[in-house]
Amino acid sequence: MSEMNTSKKNSNVVAPLINGLLKENPTFVLMLGMCPTLAVTTSAINGMGMGLTTAAVLTMSNIIISLLRNIIPDKVRIPAFIVIIASFVTIVGQFLQAYLPALNDSLGMFIPLIVVNCIILGRAEAFASKNNPIASAFDGLGMGLGFTIALTIIGTIREMIGAHKVFGISFADIATIVHAPASVSEWLSAQSPIAIFVMAPGAFFVLACLTAMQNCIKNRKLAKGEKTKIQSGCGQDCLECSDTGCAHRFYDQDGKDCAIGKKEENND
């Protein structure tokens, strides 16, 4: 199965890239890596920085894990993955400290915590350990950029509503930059932002709204009869996958024919 998959992916490196960006966006579709998504997206810059850092770690760890996929024994694969990921997180963390100290300070603890980000371990387990290095690299890049875009969008919305700023520039300053009348920028600076949006609850509000929006689009497509596959996390359709023991199988839209349910039945 994985051989066929490899040859298919090999011919087209764009597919895993698009897959990560849109179809299986780690944040909005797979719902992975929620901890950094909710915690660091207080501003667009923070979200983008976190996303790009994760993307860098994800791409490099995917390549190395894919290269070592035939060497790492199955039974100790998780510790081995973690060691590889942790090494890259350390390297990237040192880079940030040296060249982007401000970003490093505002992300703080969440840089070392990338080690336990489920997107990275998830892609290592679901994709990199089964596919060749090139496809894995593009998968990591696609997933990483999808994560970056999602975090930047969440960060931008939260910053705009919660602090009246876009990428750190306040609305009033923007009005001055575009030569709006002085009264406009005065009016803008007098408004009080909804501060809860840059606090923890705001992250949940924004994420919920964005996820609801993309579910709405997906449901409309389903209603029109366009078949959408069941998101699996490995680029395959869970309905047509024979690997019933796979830990990454996902539920169907209305909970029918779910692999996880089947597995539980077998256990009984």
């Binding site: 009080s192 909804i194 501060a195 809860i196 949006f197 606090m199 609850p201």
Partner: peptide, 10 residues
């Protein structure tokens, strides 16, 4: 509570 957290001054 939402309003108190959001607009503490007002």
């Amino acid at each position: 509570c939402f309003l108190v957290i959001s607009f503490p001054k007002l």
